[in-house]
Computed example of a mutant assay.
Amino acid sequence: MSEVSSARWPVIVNSSLYDSDMARQLQREHKIRYSDNTIKHTCIFPLSSIAFIIVPVNEATTVWPLKSPWKLDPALIERIERFVSVHCNGYLIVTASLFGQHEMTVFSSLQDRFLKTKLRLLPAHNASDCVQCMLTIAKATCKPASAIIKERMNVALANQLSEVAVIHILSMLGLNQHDILFQSSQKLSLHQVPSL
């Protein structure tokens, strides 16, 4: 995993992000290639087969701040739909310095709009948060790291569901299965609602 995290990864960044804080932060640790042929505000990590589209919350609606009749920007919706059709592992990062009521309303509307797609939504407060999200996901889904994480999750899940693990924990607490079942049944009988 240290090889994965210490290497300079190639990242394809849309030219619309050329002079942004996010691009500068990515450039410190990774090989950036700017492209005009990608969807606006996207970053693609080819080694992980992951793509991100970054949307500032104030650009997501036709009116900002939100007023009575508002809707999501149709041009943005079209761009996100194109992004979803091109990238199977896509993430939409919605950025706002503060996620107040208006921002959460827009975020929820985006979630509702793309609920039935494979697109995953993440909030981020600034460029640093955005870069951190992207790097964490990209590193976790890269081949050697993803295999290790998957193996550890399977072991943890197997141990969690194992009866032997439960019995071991109970014995560490000085109890056995019979004691737990007996105490649980007593508590349930105390909390039963009397019938009318």
Rank of each mutant, 00 (worst) to 15 (best):
L92T: 04
V193C: 06
A60N: 00
V4C: 07
F52Q: 01
A156R: 11
N37K: 14
N126K: 09
L110R: 03
S97T: 11
I44R: 02
R120I: 10
R79I: 02
V155D: 07
D129H: 12
N154C: 11
E29H: 13
I167S: 09
A7G: 05
S97V: 06
V155N: 08
K143I: 14
K187D: 07
S20R: 04
V94Y: 02
W9C: 03
N126W: 07
M153Y: 10
Y91D: 02
K31G: 04
N176R: 11
A145R: 13
K139T: 02
V84Y: 02
K31Y: 07
A156G: 06
I180C: 12
A60D: 02
I167V: 15
Q186F: 05
L76R: 09
L110I: 06
S5K: 12
T62C: 13
L66T: 03
E3N: 12
S128A: 15
A156I: 13
S15R: 13
A23Q: 01
L47R: 10
L26N: 03
L121F: 07
A96E: 01
I80D: 01
T62Y: 04
L17S: 02
R24G: 03
L121Q: 01
Q192V: 09
S171W: 09
H41L: 04
E151K: 12
R152K: 14
S5Q: 10
I53G: 01
K116R: 08
G174S: 09
S108P: 00
D36R: 15
D19C: 08
K31Q: 09
L173E: 15
H178E: 12
L190R: 13
K150Y: 10
I167N: 10
S16F: 06
